[in-house]
């Protein structure tokens, strides 16, 4: 029973690390000439948020996971809002 739990936890951690790697590759691959590239980058970074929540849950940090779950969208929203009314309107 204990071994099964350890294997499951390892699989979840490997999945989240693969997601983090995919995000890093995706962000580096996007060229700067793409239209509205900042939004594309924020979308791809959203994958890391979920991977991070999975990792925190697996590592027995539920309170940190819940805090991250609630607070992570605020940062993305703030960046997108500032870009929309600052850079794009110019």
């Amino acid at each position: 029973m204990l071994e099964t739990i350890i294997i499951l936890k390892s699989i979840l951690l490997i999945i989240s690390s693969i997601l983090v790697l995919l995000t890093a590759i995706g962000i580096l691959r996007l060229s700067d000439d793409l239209d509205r590239v900042l939004y594309a980058r924020i979308h791809i970074l959203g994958v890391v948020d979920v991977a991070c929540i999975i990792a925190l849950l697996v590592l027995y940090e539920p309170l940190l996971a819940v805090t991250y779950f609630i607070l992570a969208p605020f940062a993305s929203h703030a960046i997108a809002n500032a870009h929309y009314y600052g850079e794009e309107k110019r």
Binding site: R36, V50, A80
Partner: peptide, 26 residues
């Protein structure tokens, strides 16, 4: 908040009185 939490969609602005959300999708 739920829109931004879902990867691939991102809320930019919220007009509370007109009930309009500006959303960027992938």
């Amino acid at each position: 908040n739920s829109i931004t939490l879902t990867p691939g969609t991102l809320s930019i602005d919220l007009d509370s009185e007109k009930r309009i959300l500006k959303v960027a999708t992938i």
